[in-house]
Design a protein around this nucleic acid. Structure first.
Lengths: 153, 153
DNA sequence: TTTTAGTCGATTAAATCGATAGACTAAATT
DNA sequence: AATTTAGTCTATCGATTTAATCGACTAAAA
């Protein structure tokens, strides 16, 4: 399960991607709009900023905004910043490898073999999906549903 | 990341699958062989038993043994017993659906769309891999490495 | 120089994780 | 029937993590 931190982060990023043209967004506004505890959101945005995903401006007219294009921010990157590596076991992580203490022989560990497959499958999806993909897919879904409603009215 | 509980469970199950022909295995033996804290292992084996994955016999000559054939025990089943649902968010779980509190409209939630993909990919691998698959693959891997060693000696 | 708004460190409460203790129950043997 | 063997169950523990909050601080505009 992903943490609330990551969920809030994704919600905030989607919002910021949508509002990008209108300049920096205040933490307070974001918190209210997306129903995220403000102080908690501060930590999340700061972490995203420290990892280059967001940028910020202080003082009047300040706030947070995307650090790079929405099409260059993958869901995988966001999860790694807030929840750590995607891998189900440390010994198959590409970004944060560590050996498992319980493991006798990593080279022939059956658990490792399956978990490597799982990691790769997850990474393919999460690193292959960007913020803009997400927004696009949601828009398609909304339109599809509006279509259905049109018929039923 | 999967928990130690799940890792220990998989290690124990692989051991029990290999020892199946020799009858019930004592918790104490299993604990020593696989370097798992005995009291902790008790809880794990009990949980597996209560979910039909293991069976047990009390008294002399007793111990734990597989509740069904190794080819009918999937890794996914084991993980669900000890770590809960595979799904990264409750709203995409097939075995333990629950709505996400943060979510406004589940039908058009972008996070949900990706996480559904992730869950399905994970489930395909984990429910499609059984204990016997695991053992078979380890054996293949061991043979491959022995082959390499033969050449290098 | 005052207002605005992000930054940072410390703290908290609750939940989860990994592990252990001890009493209990069932089955087999003597 | 008594004893030994071995799994069952409940409770508890400390450490870590998660979700959240407080307050003081700093930088940028007006």
């Amino acid at each position: 399960m992903i943490s609330k931190k990551t969920k809030y982060a994704l919600m905030a990023l989607i919002y910021l991607a949508r509002e990008y043209d209108r300049g920096p967004v205040l933490i307070a506004d974001l918190a209210e709009r997306e129903n995220i505890p403000k102080k908690f959101l501060e930590l999340i945005l700061l972490a995203l900023k420290n990892n280059g995903i967001l940028q910020s401006k202080k003082g009047k007219g300040g706030g947070y905004y995307l650090g790079r294009a929405a099409k260059d921010i993958s869901i995988g990157q966001v999860i790694r910043v807030l929840d750590g590596p995607l891998a189900p076991v440390p010994c198959v992580s590409e970004t944060a490898y560590a050996s498992c203490q319980e493991c006798r022989d990593e080279a022939t560990c059956g658990i490792r073999l399956v978990m490597k497959e799982v990691r790769d499958a997850m990474a393919a999806i999460l690193d292959g999906t960007t913020l803009s993909d997400l927004i696009e897919r949601v828009e398609r879904e909304v339109k599809k549903r509006e279509g259905i409603i049109d018929y039923t009215i």
